[in-house]
């Protein structure tokens, strides 16, 4: 048994506690999908199908079973990774999991890229603001944080497309890759990683050029909140008693800023980072629509439009899993930095 307060013990506890959380999340998804108005079979045939056909379809999907059996089936589906087949006009007949797995890499690439942009910009502007409190740099930084936070994603996306893609032609307008050259062979599905694994630097450059504008849009919007959180927490920790004590011991200024002020300020920032990451997946729906980015967000929007229930359900479940994984990662990171939460 690992020592109490050790990182391993803490990680294991968090992992075990993620299961009830996941179960609650899955239940909410199940209930919500069944209480919202609309009928998948009705949507499928537009109300023109014969009652016998409707009955047969209902039976095939298990919708004629009592709710508790439907729920048991649903949980079994989730844990076997089999979400049934799509009903919609686009992916009709295809396995839902396959469809999602084709789209997931695009969203992961977008999300990770945006998060990189958001953290790099957010943390640097936040630190600059914090250590230059009330000077001109800080005023500009605070103004940036407020303005960027309230800008709608689609508006910023359109403006960036207009300036950098249409006008200056530095970046492509939309889509994940050029049509003129073949994309890298699929290993992970992430174009950037795959092209690097295959040693194709040209394809990597193309993938990054395509990623740039969508990631910049989403990253910029998210960086506003980051800037403010980093600044506020840095000011709090820079005035902390332990910082004053470290100064009295003659610790170098650089070490005080990094090991004392910044590291302590990072704890709440990481929690915010996790929340933002979750918001980011929601934001990805808008970004993917604006940039016609063929990811999960676009898939969800399209499947809601045609009321493709198995596909909606599958997409939301995968989203739920992602959120749980992110919150696990946040907990773990916090435990790594802060010994006090390991208990």
């Amino acid at each position: 048994m690992p020592r109490r307060g050790s990182l391993v013990a803490y990680g294991v506890t968090r992992l075990v506690m993620a299961f009830p959380m996941l179960l609650i999340l899955l239940t909410v998804v199940f209930v919500v999908l069944r209480i919202i108005p609309g009928d998948p079979i009705y949507a499928l045939y537009g109300g023109r199908a014969k009652p016998s056909v409707v009955m047969a379809q209902r039976h095939k999907l298990g919708l004629d079973q009592p709710l508790y059996l439907q729920f048991a089936n649903y949980i079994a589906q989730v844990f076997t990774g089999n979400f049934g087949t799509s009903l919609g006009p686009i992916f009709g007949g295809q396995n839902v999991m396959d469809v999602i797995m084709q789209r997931l890499p695009a969203t992961v690439e977008l999300a990770v890229g945006s998060m990189l942009v958001a953290t790099i910009i957010g943390i640097s502007v936040g630190i600059l603001s914090g250590i230059n409190r009330d000077r001109i740099v800080d005023v500009v930084g605070r103004l940036y944080g407020t303005i960027i936070f309230v800008i709608p994603i689609f508006w910023l996306g359109l403006m960036l497309q207009f300036v950098f893609a249409v006008d200056l032609k530095w970046f492509p307008v939309n889509s994940r890759f050029d049509v003129s050259i073949p994309p890298p062979a699929t290993i992970t599905g992430l174009y950037t990683i795959d092209s690097l694994l295959k040693g194709r630097l040209d394809a990597f450059a193309v993938a990054v050029r395509h990623l740039f504008l969508p990631c910049l849009t989403l990253g910029l919007v998210l960086s506003g909140f980051f800037t403010k959180t980093v600044r506020a927490n840095l000011l709090r920790t820079a005035g902390a008693d332990y910082v004053e004590a470290a100064r009295a011991r003659g610790i170098r200024r650089r070490a005080i800023v990094m090991r004392y002020a910044f590291k302590n300020a990072l704890i709440p920032v990481i929690t915010v980072l996790g929340l933002e990451f979750a918001i980011l997946f929601a934001g990805a729906v808008l970004t993917e629509t604006t940039f016609n980015w063929n990811g999960m967000g676009l898939l969800l929007v399209n499947s809601i439009e045609v009321q493709d229930y198995p596909l909606i359900q599958g997409t939301i479940i995968v989203y739920s899993f992602i959120i749980v994984i992110i919150s696990l990662m946040v907990d773990f990171l916090n435990g790594l930095i802060d010994p006090r939460v390991r208990y």
């Binding site: 902390a240 004590a245 003659g250 802060d338």
Partner: peptide, 20 residues
């Protein structure tokens, strides 16, 4: 000089050490 020649003990020991 700070810490090596002149040192200071604070009145509130609870908050003077870096918790991390």
């Amino acid at each position: 000089l700070q810490g090596e020649e002149i040192a200071l003990i604070f009145q509130d020991p609870m908050t003077r050490l870096n918790p991390l």
